[in-house]
Amino acid sequence: MSSKGNTETEAFELIEGHYLVGNQGIYKVQEFLGEGAFGKVAKCSKLGSQEMYAIKIITHVEEGMEEFESMKLIKALDPDENHLIKMYECFSFQNMICLVFEILEESLEDFLNKNKCKATPLTYVRAIAQQMFQALQALKSIGVVHCDIKLDNIMFADKQSLKFKLIDFGLALETEELSTDTDVKIDIQVNPFRAPEVILGLPLDESVDMWALGMVLACVYRGNYIFPPKSEYETDKAEHRTGLRCRA
């Protein structure tokens, strides 16, 4: 078995009650919040502290280090003031990369599913828009593009006060890199949040994030997708019918 396969097996053998030894302390896995192709996200307590953390446990070291490097791009920004996820540390543990984040509540995707995809009050939409516009403005000020804005990647920080945060900078790029890399378009954004210029292979900049955020806001307001999530072709066809196409 390859080392890559071994790494995946070790990561998924983690169970509740196991410990992760970090640089700033020892974390105990309380429960798993989710999982994906990257690995798992665990809710963890820190020994000697009452604080809880969300630790993203990434099974592939290279991918984990890439996400860590992406987080370093935004380290100059105040995460609370700019509505961005806060990262505390990154460490390697038993061939896995562990990124320690503040713990948030639920994603917009989970929120809509719990509400059975009903339309969302405008007070929510307005709060999301205002806070995410501020987040994007902050990213633009340091020349960074998120590249993966979607329902899963905007979370409630405090549902009662309608505070939200932008998470998951695993695909984030510097604007200059995005505008010069002709191959990057195939690796960013997902349907139905993919901007027309990404689909059409046109020059890219931070406006791809604004398009994706617009689609998120429309989804939240309506309770469902504006464009079909199946394929680029279906999304492109729907955009053409509505006239929502970028101008070359």
Rank of each mutant, 00 (worst) to 15 (best):
V125Q: 00
F156G: 08
K86T: 09
C117S: 11
K116D: 15
M87K: 05
I154W: 08
D158C: 13
Q131A: 05
L122F: 00
E62S: 07
I128C: 08
A76M: 14
F133I: 01
P79D: 01
G48R: 01
F101L: 09
E63N: 13
L136H: 03
A37M: 14
E102P: 07
L99E: 13
A54H: 04
K56I: 10
E51K: 04
E109R: 02
A127W: 05
L104T: 07
D110L: 14
G39S: 06
Q134R: 13
I58T: 05
V144E: 03
K75I: 02
D110I: 03
A42Y: 03
A54S: 11
N82Y: 02
K56C: 14
A129K: 02
C117I: 03
V61R: 12
E63K: 05
S49K: 15
C98A: 06
K116I: 08
K43P: 12
F93V: 00
G39H: 13
N113H: 15
K40Y: 09
D78R: 03
V145M: 10
K140G: 06
H60P: 07
S45V: 10
L47E: 10
N113Y: 11
N153W: 06
G34K: 05
V100R: 03
T120S: 07
M87E: 06
Y53H: 01
V144C: 14
V144S: 04
K118S: 10
E67K: 00
E69M: 11
M71N: 02
L33S: 13
I142E: 10
K159L: 13
S107T: 01
V125W: 00
T120A: 09
F101W: 09
A127T: 13
E35K: 12
F91E: 03
S161I: 11
Q131S: 12
A54T: 04
I103H: 08
A37T: 02
G64P: 03
L47P: 06
K75E: 03
N115T: 03
Y124Q: 00
M52Y: 15
V125G: 06
Y124R: 00
D110E: 11
I128D: 09
K43G: 15
V100T: 11
S141P: 14
I85W: 14
F68A: 09
M87P: 05
G64M: 09
E62W: 13
S161F: 14
N115A: 08
G39A: 10
A157H: 06
Q94G: 11
C117M: 11
L151C: 09
A37K: 14
Q130S: 15
K159P: 14
K118P: 07
L162P: 06
I154M: 04
I142R: 02
D78E: 04
